[in-house]
Amino acid sequence: MTDDRDPREQDSQWYDNEAGPLVRPYAMTGGRTRSGPTGVAFDLIALVTLDASAPDADDTLGPEHRTLIELCRPETQSVAELAAGADLPVGVVRVLLGDLLESGRVTVSRPVPPAQLPDERILREVIEGLRAL
């Protein structure tokens, strides 16, 4: 008995017909693994804000770029939230955000590091002083 299926299909048992087409992460990033701007680290908790003065999405952006822009449109999002919302790996989101940052469409800010926050003891003293008023 002969198998009439395409030989490529026989070797592709990992492919799930219900999942639809599969795009590898390196295809979305053009094979890049690092974000564009040097010195910018997209931590999971880095906050990404859509730049209101930036031009609207154009045809030079890929669908993943546009998805990230739409996720940032209503409010500031963390890198982790963007990855979850876009259903993309964090590494891919970092590279795509690097593209958006270079084109001036988004801005990135970091939360205050714990070392720069006021001491808990001082905050408690302030609260106690306010309560005494």
Rank of each mutant, 00 (worst) to 15 (best):
T38A: 14
L50P: 02
A57R: 06
E75W: 05
G129W: 10
L88K: 12
T29A: 06
V106H: 00
R94Q: 15
G104F: 01
V108A: 10
R94G: 13
P25C: 12
D119V: 08
P114F: 02
D3C: 15
P21V: 08
D43H: 13
D87F: 12
D58E: 00
V79D: 02
D4W: 13
D43Y: 15
S78T: 15
P74I: 06
P113N: 05
A46N: 06
L50D: 02
V108I: 11
A54T: 10
E9D: 14
L68F: 03
R105S: 04
L117P: 00
R32K: 15
L22K: 12
V93P: 13
G20Y: 02
E125H: 04
E9C: 01
Q13G: 05
V48H: 00
L44Q: 12
E128S: 03
E9T: 01
S109V: 05
T33V: 14
W14P: 00
L117N: 03
V40G: 05
R5Y: 07
D4S: 12
R24C: 00
C72G: 06
P74H: 09
L22Q: 12
T29M: 04
L97W: 05
I45G: 08
E18L: 12
E102T: 15
S35G: 14
L123A: 15
P118L: 04
M1P: 00
M1G: 13
I45E: 15
E120L: 13
N17R: 11
T33Q: 07
A41V: 15
P37L: 12
Q13V: 10
V95N: 02
Q13K: 10
A86G: 09
G85M: 04
A41I: 13
T29L: 06
E9V: 05
V126E: 08
L71R: 02
S78A: 07
V106A: 06
F42K: 01
A46S: 15
I122T: 13
D51T: 03
D16Y: 01
E81S: 14
A86S: 15
S109K: 03
V92W: 02
P7Y: 04
D99M: 03
D16H: 03
V48A: 00
I122E: 13
E81R: 09
E102M: 12
P111W: 02
A52L: 09
V48F: 04
A84Q: 14
R34M: 09
L123F: 10
L100G: 11
D6A: 06
E81V: 08
V108E: 01
R8F: 06
N17F: 08
P113R: 14
A80T: 04
D119Y: 05
L101T: 07
G85Y: 02
V126W: 10
I127A: 11
